[in-house]
Amino acid sequence: MVNRKLVGAHYGLLDWLVQRTTGVVMAAYTVIVAYALTQGVGSSYERWLAFMSSTPMRFISFLCVVSLCWHAWIGVRDTWMDYVQPAGIKLTLHVLTVLSVIGCGGWAVQILWRL
């Protein structure tokens, strides 16, 4: 039997997996958008709008926004955990990070929603 203290926390496997999965999603998105930009989708408003409002882009843009938020939360939270010792400041930074990630994510989704 595994003998370890249960302290109500998960042990990082989910975060590890999420960080990798969301990273791959964003890397793929970056390559797709960068390639499209070299093909001139950013040359005019009409082309840019047509590109971003196409069905595949609506699908993966949303995935990318969700991935970005989740990835940023884990990464930034780990950074605070490593460098900020006073519990009060750390907790405040965690809360501010969650709020700003959710706010930015919601804002980005609204932009995509309007397309």
Binding site: A72, V76, S100, V101
Partner: peptide, 8 residues
């Protein structure tokens, strides 16, 4: 990563 987060 932190830079990208702050400029989000």
């Amino acid at each position: 990563g932190v830079g990208l987060f702050l400029m989000l």
